[in-house]
């Protein structure tokens, strides 16, 4: 079947089975490989994208459902929160192997868009769906606080 999907502000016409997970459409049809496969069952968060602004696991989201929404991926996430998060990630050298970090960043940006000054508890709740095998959790936490502080100063 043919689907028109909105990804990063552009409409793409995709021929595929409606049950195909959005993840593989992004990676192999649209060549947006920043979004990663980690588990396929929404357990690790490596495939996190924004669906109408909400962080969502693209590995379990069927194309036919995704086709009615606005999708944003790591390649095009923009705005003050995204910039602050990226800056903080670089300043703190957060990524190690880096494979999970697209998903981590997508979850963190969504958190800062919802909560201007998240507490450690808020961060735990928002980020515990994203596994990092290099265990960069402490730097992720610190970088989220840094980004929130930077946005607070800028505001």
């Amino acid at each position: 079947m043919s689907y028109a999907i909105s990804v990063n502000g552009q409409i793409h016409h995709v021929e595929d089975d409606g049950q195909t997970p959005l993840l593989w459409v992004l990676r192999d049809t649209l060549k947006l490989t920043g979004t990663k496969y980690g588990c396929g069952v929404a357990q690790c968060g490596a495939c996190t994208v924004h669906v109408d602004g909400t962080p969502t696991r693209s590995c379990t989201l069927p194309l036919e459902v995704a086709a009615s929404a606005r999708i944003t991926t790591i390649e095009s996430i923009e705005g003050v929160e995204a910039q602050a998060i990226r800056d903080a990630w670089v300043a703190r050298d957060v990524p190690q192997c880096g494979f999970c970090q697209s998903g981590q960043i997508m979850s963190a940006v969504a958190l800062l868009r919802t909560l201007k000054t998240p507490t450690d508890r808020d961060i735990d709740v928002a980020m515990s769906g994203n596994i990092c095998r290099c265990a960069t959790y402490n730097r992720i936490r610190a970088a989220i606080h840094d980004a929130a502080a930077q946005l607070g100063t800028a505001r």
Binding site: R27, D28, K31, L32, T33, G34, T35, K36, Y37, T73, I74, E75, R86, W89, V90, D93, V94, P95, G98, F99, Q101, S102, I105
Partner: peptide, 21 residues
């Protein structure tokens, strides 16, 4: 001194084996 690989790991451009096209 910061890690040289970090910038590519915050914007989706880092190429892992799984990303080879």
């Amino acid at each position: 001194i910061q890690r040289i690989d970090v910038p590519s790991k915050v914007n989706g451009t880092a190429v892992f084996g799984i990303d080879v096209q």
